[in-house]
């Protein structure tokens, strides 16, 4: 699915990712943990194709293709989607416009006809229910005036509609109360499947109680310094990052 090899990236001339390796197979769930400022969000932005995040060396292949050569919108249409740590508010662009445009862009990319308006509405309604969001959210501006938790739900709603092959979640659980965490986790679990993978960036075991990872990685100073199974997350929860970082 995804293979990152010796990835180096910088922002404003400052090196952030310093030789990162990661391989995510089909159907797998990976959790990436690590201290603040270690480069987790930077990795996500680089994978999504944000301007200004300069890859200086290394490679990323996604489903056998060179991901770094693709424009951000092509990455999305190919099935890589990032739930942002801080989703922007876009007043005046209705959620439903965005969802429809994104959905149809993906279909067009695959050579499929545009979706019927009625069918699409049915699909939206159903996915909105899974996220326990009121339908009125569809007709509001993208994230406009949403609370922190509502923004995060909205990110997952987009994923449920677009059904990415690889879902990247950047601290989607931060700032969620227990009920919202459950809803978000259920949403993500709905996405899981044999040919779908999930990469979760998180600080907390409580998310991993709901979405059980196959692999856990520790990212520190731009590199993955330790990998393990779900027990690594429990160990980090108990002892913090300090020991792992020092041992590396």
């Amino acid at each position: 699915m995804l293979k990152i090899t010796d990835l180096h990236a910088e922002v404003d001339g400052k090196p952030i990712l310093k030789g990162l390796n990661l391989e995510v197979g089909s159907g797998e769930v990976h959790a990436i943990m690590g201290p603040n400022g270690s480069g987790k969000s930077t990795l996500c932005q680089v994978l999504a194709g944000r301007d200004g995040y300069q890859v200086t060396s290394g490679s990323v292949s996604f489903e056998g293709q060179d991901l770094l050569a693709m424009a951000p919108e092509i990455r999305a249409r190919e099935g890589l989607l990032l739930a942002f740590q801080y989703p922007v508010e876009i007043p005046g662009v209705k959620n439903v416009y965005l969802l429809k445009a994104a959905y149809n862009a993906q279909r067009e990319h695959r050579g499929e006809p545009e979706v019927d308006a009625f069918e699409f509405l049915q699909l939206l309604r159903e996915r909105t229910r899974i996220m326990k969001m009121d339908e009125s959210f569809l007709h509001r501006g993208v994230n406009e005036g949403f609370s922190g938790g509502e923004k995060k739900r909205n990110e997952i709603l987009q994923m449920l509609v677009l059904e990415p092959k690889l879902a990247l979640l950047d601290e989607t659980d931060s700032g969620l109360d227990i009920d919202a965490l459950k809803v978000v986790s259920e949403g993500v679990n709905t996405l899981r499947g044999e040919d779908r993978s999930v990469v979760l960036v998180t600080h907390y075991q409580r998310l991993l109680d709901h979405i059980v990872p196959d692999f856990v990685h520790v990212l520190s100073d731009g590199r993955i310094i330790k990998s393990g199974d779900k027990s690594l997350a429990l160990e980090l929860e108990a002892n913090g990052y300090q020991n792992v970082v020092e041992a590396a």
Partner: peptide, 28 residues
């Protein structure tokens, strides 16, 4: 730029994203 990237990261091409944001600006 952030809004533009957000829309593109959902699969909208640059032109559509610019059009939508311009429309939203007038929409106020």
């Amino acid at each position: 730029e952030q809004s533009l990237f957000y829309l593109r990261s959902r699969g909208l091409d640059d032109k559509t994203a610019r059009g939508l944001l311009t429309f939203a600006f007038a929409g106020e």
